Amino acid sequence: MPTERTRVRRRPERGHYDRATIDAILDEALLCHVGVVVDGEPFVIPTTIVREGDWVYLHGSPKNRLLTTIAAGAAACITVTLVDSIVAGRSGFGMSMDYRSVVIFAHGEVIDDPAEKNRLVYRFVEAIIPGHQVRPAKPQELNATLFLRFPIEEASAKIRDVGVVDPEEDQALDLWAGVVPLKLVAGEPRPCPALKPGTATPDYAKGWKRP
């Protein structure tokens, strides 16, 4: 159910509060933006995000001021946006985008257990590039990484998928209008210059794509 913070007020018909819709958007996203107030000033940073069950996970350096502020108890606002198309109307005011977005309000929980932090390393790898093989994480690497999890309890999605919405009088103009679909497409993988000779590019890298 929506809360006072998550209820979509502008274009309320575009609001969605069911977990299936929210989860699908979160699972497709590679990046989120995290907002928090630090020493009275608002800060927003982009970072990778992973959903697992009823939680979303973030990680970064223990020296990251925004993440350490959240770890100390500050409330966070996490947003994800997927742009699906450019909407070209017949006027400047008719220009828009079709998109899917999610907003989550939550407090973060610090994950201290080394085994769980190690598991999350592989979870992030699998979420970003499924099938990728990595060496085991070193203890000093785990110690130098802050993992936070946030409950998906106070969240909402907002979706625009209506294309061009020009007033009737503009529809008679001799001007093109329509949508330009957008999607995230992977290019040809570029092997690391220091790759061990004879190491072939795996199929999961050649065929990478988002859900």
Rank of each mutant, 00 (worst) to 15 (best):
G35V: 04
K183A: 15
V121M: 11
V162L: 13
A200K: 08
T81S: 13
A74I: 09
D84S: 01
P191L: 06
A75D: 12
R14Y: 11
R119W: 10
I111W: 03
P139Q: 05
A106I: 05
A24E: 15
I152D: 10
K158G: 07
D54L: 00
R9C: 11
I86Q: 03
K209M: 10
R5N: 15
S85T: 04
F147E: 05
L120R: 12
D203H: 11
R65P: 14
D166Q: 03
Y204D: 13
P211C: 05
V87E: 09
D18N: 10
D166A: 11
V125S: 15
D98R: 01
I159F: 12
V180Q: 12
I78C: 02
L58H: 06
R14G: 13
E41Y: 06
G53D: 02
E41K: 09
L66C: 04
A29I: 09
V83S: 05
F93L: 08
I22V: 14
D203Q: 14
S96Y: 11
Y99Q: 04
V164I: 12
A155T: 04
C77Y: 09
P193E: 14
K206E: 14
E52G: 07
I49F: 05
A186W: 06
I22G: 10
A137Y: 06
R90P: 02
V38M: 00
I129M: 14
V103R: 00
K63Y: 11
T47M: 04
E169T: 10
S91G: 09
